[in-house]
């Protein structure tokens, strides 16, 4: 009976906390912006005025008009529709990469922080090595040797996230594991597995959620940079990075090709950065910058 009660209590606490989070104007703004982005991405097939791959060379490089809100590209494809589908691509890839990074990184970080000693030393050394290579360089190198297929792109995007999650989780675990209630768990003979997953990690959730929010924005940025350089999402799948790169060729006489997808990327980054800031103030007020 008590466990069911705890469960309900947990949800109530969550909603209370969420309500407090939304009491800030800036937090409301970023939250609504992100909901809007997700809505646009989900609804892309129904709200796009044209299929994203509908080619019409006769109508190429047309400026913004009522028919084509953001103009058309060199093949006459509707930029607005492609931007909407691009949101779908970026958000879904970023979510998968961050969730993969989170699961793996939190596990590694928890082991490192909880076990400590030599294991911790070795894991943190390896993390430091991976952190020595800038994310985009690592991603570029990996995709170039493995090939730009979706699973490899996601892998390339998550490797750095794994190390970031591992670091933050380790730090949180180190501070939590010295608390009295953890000692109490040991005293009543609980298994290490149960202590880590049942008692230590749930109390480290704040910094992890903050990091996850910021990293979704980061992964979207890395993915678009990768696509911009031709090593990410490949045609005909629409991606903001690829669209900006294509627009770069027609910059002088058709700047809208690069401007509009870039604006969406920029808005997405603003939304996730603001949300991350708000989350940090809300959940992890003592923590510093996580990235």
């Amino acid at each position: 009976m008590s466990s069911a009660e705890n469960h309900v209590g947990g949800w109530v606490l969550f909603f209370e906390s969420f309500k407090r989070f939304l009491s800030s104007k800036l937090n409301r703004f970023s939250f609504v912006l992100i909901l809007l982005l997700f809505a646009l991405a989900l609804a892309a097939p129904w709200i796009s005025p044209f299929p994203f791959d509908q080619v019409n060379p006769a109508n190429g490089l047309k400026g913004p008009s009522w028919e084509h809100l953001m103009g058309t590209d060199n093949a006459g494809r509707d930029i607005f529709s492609r931007v909407l589908y691009g949101a779908r691509t970026s958000l879904s890839i970023a979510m998968i990469a961050v969730i993969f990074g989170l699961i793996t990184g939190v596990f590694i970080g928890a082991v490192s922080g909880y076990v400590g000693g030599m294991v911790d030393e070795v894991i943190m050394r390896i993390v430091e090595i991976f952190m020595s290579i800038p994310g985009i360089v690592m991603a570029l190198a990996l995709v170039s040797v493995l090939g730009p297929s979706l699973p490899f792109i996601i892998l390339a995007l998550s490797i750095r996230r794994i190390t970031q999650f591992a670091r933050v989780t380790r730090g949180a675990v180190l501070s939590v594991k010295t608390q009295d209630y953890v000692t109490a768990c040991h005293a009543i003979g609980m298994s290490n597995m149960r202590i880590v997953f049942g008692h230590v990690l749930p109390n480290c959730i704040g910094p992890i959620i903050v990091l996850a929010t910021v990293l979704i924005g980061n992964v979207i940025l890395t993915e678009s940079t990768l696509s911009f350089l031709g090593m990410g999402i490949q045609e005909p799948t629409p991606s903001w990075g690829t669209m900006i790169a294509q627009g770069n060729e027609f910059l002088t006489f058709a700047p809208w090709l690069s401007i509009f997808p870039g604006l969406f990327l920029f808005l997405t980054m603003i939304a996730f950065n603001l949300l991350g800031d708000g989350m940090r103030d809300h959940l992890d007020p003592r923590g510093g910058s996580v990235v």
Binding site: S224, T225, N248, N273
Partner: peptide, 14 residues
């Protein structure tokens, strides 16, 4: 906040 959110490669093009 605009600075941290602007994609570097897009800013270069702008």
């Amino acid at each position: 906040i605009i600075g941290v959110s602007t994609p570097t490669f897009w800013f270069a093009i702008i």
